[in-house]
Amino acid sequence: MNAVLKETAHAIAPLAVHGLTHCYEGSNVLRGVDLALEPGSVLGLIGRNGAGKSTLIRAMLGLLEPLSGEARVFGEPALKLSDAAKARLAYVPQQPEALAWLSAQQMLDFVGRFYPRWDARFANQTLERWKIQPNKLLAKLSPGERQRVDLIRALASQPELLVLDEPAAALDPVARRELLREVALRAGESGTTVLFSTHIVSDLERVASEIAFLHEGRLILRCGVDDTKERYARLWLPASKSAAAPAQALSRRRHEDGSLSLVVERDAQDRWPEAANLPGARVDALGLEDLFVEIAE
């Protein structure tokens, strides 16, 4: 993690937090999170429900006062952002419910006046393409439609930093794919930095360049998506060889017959731990989903 922080220190990280802790009603939600995004990267924040993803995102953007630690957006303290920094940033909360008393068109008109690079044409075209009646009040739209309107709101401001909290939760598969396409292309072409949280791993595998895995308020893994798939694997050892298991493992699970499953990592020379070469041992490549199930259990 420190390596990442140092690496991005010279270019100003669009989003960075250090030593973030927060609690709700006495129980810790975040326990010391360090995270920084490089410009142009697409970071997928993954974790089980209740792992603290939304809280982390809100703390990163200065939408809550954390118990301790600091959050910066484009180098500015997140709780005291300047108008210039705000204009470069767009955030879509989970299940957005803002301005229910306006119609979709009114809401976009209203918000659009505040953003210097507002793309009204994009907003109108996307409303039409995503089949949302522009004159219907937001209160009368379904949760999925409201989420789409809010995504249009975020994208039309042409942000340099796009933060999406569970953007796909209320969307149907077709709309989800469209959103991912939009996010992927913006990241690739305009260099938009994207942070999105999800519990749907396949979304992440498509568009994310990096993943961060939040588990019980801690960031336990931060890696490039491709690296993760190549660096980690499941090592299975039969009961007779389980004593030879490597001490270093991300997770360790003993089965009923005494055999052992471990999540292991390649060493600096790209080799698996020695136990992998024992007779009867097996190394299985892991998709991200399997990896997370192994670790989160």
Binding site: V42, R177, L180, R181, A184, E189, R206
Partner: peptide, 18 residues
């Protein structure tokens, strides 16, 4: 093009470039 592949499959263009 990278954009076409990325757009069609909704994947990150950097992956295609790579």
């Amino acid at each position: 093009s990278v954009r076409e592949v990325a757009g069609f499959h909704a994947i990150n263009p950097m992956t295609v470039s790579r």
